[in-house]
Write a protein that binds this DNA or RNA. Structure first.
Lengths: 201, 201
DNA sequence: CGATTCTTTGAAAACAGTCAATCTGTGTGG
DNA sequence: CCACACAGATTGACTGTTTTCAAAGAATCG
C-alpha cells in the first residue's frame, strides 16, 4: 500500500525540473488537493473514443499509449508515455469536444489526474505550477514540430534510429507493434529494419 | 505608399478573431510601438539557417514558407503561411539557439515583427494580446498534432485531399513543388496524384 | 521573344505494405 | 511440471506505392 505522499513524490520532483520556483508546504497541499490519484491496471482505459477528455494524466508510475482507429481500420499511435510524461487529448480537453482517441495503459500504473478547472485554479495560485505548464507547452510544441519534420522528411529506418537515440526507454518498454504504429510503419517493416541494423553494426 | 494605420488594420482585425477583449486606443498605440513593420520582396529571407530567430512575423500581406535542408540535401517545407498567419522558428525564438530553418517570402509581403521582449511586455500590459497568444498556442498545438496524425497514418493522396479541403488557398498560391515538400512527397508524385483526381471527378 | 523556373511524363528501381505461415516466449490451467 | 493457448515477432512471396532520373512540355517574367 502506498501513501499519497509517496505517489506525489515523482510529481514534485518533476515540477522541480520544469520550474525555477519551488513549492511552499501550503502549495504542496494545494497541489495534492487538486490532483486525483488513480490506479490503473495494464490494459485499462483512461479515455475512450467519443468521450470528452476531462483530465490530463501525469504518469507517476507505469506506461500508456494514446491511439486512434484510422480510416483504414488500423490503430495509429499518436503518443507513447512512461513515468513523468503526460497523457491526454489536448484538443478534447481544451475544447470540450468528443475525443477521437483512446488512451490505454500498457503497464500497471499510478496516474495523477487534473481537470481543466483545477488546473486553472492552480495556475492562478501557484507560480511554480504556472511556470511548469508554460514550460510543458513550449517544449511540447517544439517536440511535436520535430517529430512532424521527421515524419515528412525521413525514411522509416532513419525515424526508428532517431527514436532509439532519443527515447531508448520506449524501445524497451513498448511492444514493437506499438513502436511501428507510432512511427507510421507496419510491424513487419519494423521487424525487417531491426534485422538490418543488427547485421550492419 | 502605405500608412502605418493601413498596415496594422489586418492585425487589429486578427486580434478580434482571437480574443474576446477589445483594444483601447492607448493599447493600440502600445501595440504599434512594439511591432516593427517590414516590407519584403519575393524571394527575400526573413531568417537563414544558423541565425537566431529574433522575431515572430505576422503576415499582414503576402506569403512565405519555412523550410530546411534535410540530410539528403533536399528542401523540406515545415510551414506555409499567407495573410493572418505567423512565421518564425518557435524553437530558436524561445530558446535562443541557432535555427535549422530558412524563412523565405514567396510573394512581396508586409510583415509585423515582434521580439520576445516586446511580446512579453505586451502580454503583461494588454489583456487582449495575452488572450490572443494563448489562443494561438492552443490552436497551433492542435493543428500540428492533427498534421502529425495525418502524416503518419494517411497515404499521399489522402494528405493532399485533406490539405485542399482545409486550406485551398495554399494550393492556389504556392508552387506545387512547395506543396509536395510540405506534404512530404516528391513533386512528381504530386503531379501524378493531381492527374488522378482530375480523371476521377 | 528568350531565359528561367515549374510541371508533366515515362521507365526503372527502391521502398513499404499485405497476407499467410511459422517461430518464440509467456503465462495458465490441468 | 507439462501441455496448451495466446500474443508478439519474424520470414517469405507478392503487390502496390513512391522515388529517382532524364527528358520534354508549359508557364512566367524581364
Amino acid at each position: 500500500m502506498y501513501s499519497a505522499k509517496t505517489l506525489f513524490q515523482p510529481f514534485f520532483d518533476y515540477i522541480k525540473t520544469k520550474s525555477s520556483i519551488s513549492l511552499t508546504d501550503e502549495e504542496m497541499i494545494m497541489v495534492m488537493d487538486n490532483y486525483k490519484i488513480k490506479h490503473l491496471r495494464k490494459r485499462q482505459y483512461l479515455l475512450q473514443e467519443g468521450d470528452v477528455c476531462k483530465y490530463m494524466a501525469f504518469i507517476a508510475k507505469g506506461a500508456g499509449r494514446m491511439y486512434r482507429i484510422n480510416e483504414h481500420g488500423q490503430d495509429s499511435v499518436i503518443r507513447l508515455a512512461v513515468e513523468s510524461w503526460w497523457l491526454g487529448d489536448f484538443e478534447s480537453y481544451n475544447l470540450g469536444t468528443p475525443s477521437k482517441y483512446n488512451i490505454e495503459m500498457t503497464e500497471d500504473s499510478d496516474v495523477l489526474l487534473i481537470s481543466r478547472e483545477s488546473s486553472q485554479e492552480l495556475i492562478r495560485n501557484v507560480p511554480a505550477i504556472a511556470q511548469m505548464i508554460n514550460e510543458i507547452d513550449k517544449s511540447g510544441t517544439i517536440a511535436t514540430q520535430r517529430r512532424l519534420q521527421s515524419a515528412i522528411s525521413l525514411g522509416a529506418e532513419e525515424r526508428y534510429q532517431e527514436l532509439s537515440d532519443l527515447y531508448p526507454e520506449f524501445i524497451r518498454r513498448f511492444p514493437q507493434s506499438m513502436i511501428a504504429s507510432y512511427l507510421g510503419i507496419s510491424a513487419e517493416t519494423l521487424s525487417r529494419i531491426r534485422k538490418n541494423l543488427l547485421r550492419s553494426k
